[in-house]
Write a protein that binds this DNA or RNA. Structure first.
Lengths: 348, 348
DNA sequence: TTTAGCACTCCAAATATTTAAGTGCTAACA
DNA sequence: TGTTAGCACTTAAATATTTGGAGTGCTAAA
């Protein structure tokens, strides 16, 4: 259901209601709107408009004699209204935040973990919402170096460093006879053949080799290559989360039971990672409002997520999770600016 | 201030009040105590005793005509009373928990991260409080293998695996001319000389070598060794935290502002790590009640912490953080049993 | 030292009362 | 036809009032 055509005045009223409610979470009355947002019609007129908006599903009345509260649909309309122009804006305050972040990031350029921790913390700090960042998927990076370390007889620890300097390790089973020397040779082989190559590409190539070996030559070598192939697969699991305590005191979460459920879902990570992985494919800032969220437990929230890139390749996402009645204007500006800052740092 | 001598009956009354308050967070009256805990005296007598206990600082009366509430001192007295015998107890329910945990841990034996994650999650699950675990300090483990990886000109990533299979990495500056081959040689040198040695021992030995080299031979080699020494130092930073959402719905945290502060402090980690490092030196279960906590923000909580060991060497701590009015008996049994289970797994 | 008994205190829950904000509707107006 | 003034009506939230009961402290007697 696409937006019904609303005339200019009606739009203004709707946006005014949303903004007013964002500012203070209380049902908004017609007189208040009229005065505060400088409409030159009397409150009864506004009242009629608001009544229409309610019929269209943009507003909701908690009870007969109360003012009105925006629905998710209203937030969506509001965001669509302000989105384009907001991207162009930049307040002095936000400039300050971004400059400070950029400076810090430059120093952390070489340590991805600190880099993303700092980003999410700053984002949370600046907005008082929850800051998130999804690290680059290993498969989107290239192999810098691998090392295989024999550990306790039948185990091998594979340590992989990618071109972003992110170190990952994986414990895999191996047949006990294999020696550290053989493992080192294997590592040398992989390093000299595959450095700078994408992980999926490497696995693919290994797959072909395995097939060849299996058919024509050495089954053992095929086995080792298989292990190696395994060692180079990493599922995405690095999600940084900062500032959970920041969203606790928002009036929107006065219900502890709800807060608890949210905290549980967020701590779980899996769902969020999946959500952000989709967005990471995307090219633009994505805004998810309330009901639109595929994660049911988070439908009382809104999410603003932006991919960050290296040059033109999207690597991951940074995101902001806050109440539906968040200050979208500010939040969009910040997420946008932070993503740019991160992109710049990574593209240097 | 050590415990004043209380006669047997007074002790029983005090413990009864504490237990009753733990069960239900409401001021406890004299008649209730008399009936529920089977005292063969009339309520007025209990009343007199409770009045005495208030004078001694064990109980507190929210207002004149209310029952009484235990103070931190009362909890301390209660815990001291039940502690010894509690260690010997073991309910069927707890046995179940521990068996299930032990089974899981055995499977995760080779992956320390999962091992500790599972432990804290189970602990939180079983108690509905907050489960924590401090990983073994790198300096308390021995070197299994190290690898130096050249990264971006003047950086080296040191990847260290200790005898617990924990992989750590550290980014250090190095002079740009150093080649990967030289780094590999260095790693070979360290691996063949120091495998199985304690980290502090290695650093100490390197220190001597550096001195020698500097004085007699090659300044460059001294530099490299220095870098190597740096690479082998890790401050403690691995604290697992599970189940924050579990403590949210406890009546003790109905004040969101307080909960927020607690969440913030816990997320901060530093303070907790410091606290647990001290306890890790200790040999026994340590219980910290309210005021006794050196961390001011956590004075509305109690902590039960137990070191876990490998054979007889204490490695780290697992701990439970909950409200002061927690079920100490159950909590102590669980922490104790979980620590044993972890110790067994690690000592196998 | 313990107990019975009683006056007293104070909270908490239930109930009533007031207040204020905001609506919907009608009739008049431009 | 859209807008406005005016007014009756609704409702929640704030405030005040009442009531019940749990629990105490004290006193005098056992």
């Amino acid at each position: 259901m696409k937006n019904i055509m609303l005339d200019e005045r009606t739009k203004r009223v709707l946006c005014a209601v949303v903004e007013s409610y964002i500012e203070k979470p209380e049902p908004v009355g017609s007189r208040y709107i009229m005065k505060k947002y400088g409409f030159n019609v009397c409150s009864a007129t506004i009242r009629n408009i608001m009544s229409d908006l309610e019929d269209e599903g943009f507003l909701f009345q908690p009870h007969t004699s109360a003012g009105r509260v925006p629905t998710d649909r209203a937030y969506r309309f509001y965001v669509d209204c302000i989105f384009q122009e907001t991207l162009k804006l930049q307040s002095a305050e936000i400039k300050r935040f971004v400059e400070s972040l950029t400076k810090k990031l430059r120093k952390l350029r070489n340590n991805m973990n600190s880099l993303f921790l700092e980003t999410t913390q700053s984002l949370s700090q600046a907005t008082k919402y929850l800051g998130l960042a999804l690290l680059p998927e290993t498969d989107k990076t290239t192999l810098h170096r691998v090392d295989f370390i024999k550990f306790r007889d039948d185990l091998v620890i594979a340590v992989v460093v990618n071109d972003k300097g992110i170190v990952k390790n994986k414990i895999i089973k191996a047949y006990p006879e294999i020696t550290q020397q053989e493992l080192s040779n294997l590592a040398d082989f992989v390093n000299s053949n595959y450095q700078g190559k994408a992980f999926d590409e490497i696995r693919e190539d290994l797959f072909l080799r395995i097939k060849r070996e299996k058919i024509f030559w050495d089954k053992l070598i095929a086995k080792i290559l298989k292990m190696c192939q395994q060692a180079l697969y990493f599922s995405r699991e690095d999600l940084y989360i900062s500032g959970l305590y920041n969203i606790m005191h928002l009036p929107d979460f006065s219900d502890i039971e709800k807060l608890r459920e949210i905290a549980k879902t967020i701590q779980d990570r899996h769902l969020l990672i999946k959500l952000f992985e989709n967005i990471s494919e995307n090219d633009d800032i994505k805004i998810i409002i309330g009901d639109e969220n595929p994660i049911e437990e988070l439908r009382s929230l809104s999410i603003i997520a932006s991919p960050y890139k290296e040059r033109d390749k999207s690597l991951g996402v940074i995101a902001l999770v806050g109440p539906k009645r968040m200050d979208y204007q500010r939040a969009i500006m910040l997420v946008n600016a932070f993503a740019k800052s991160l992109t710049d740092t990574l593209s240097e």
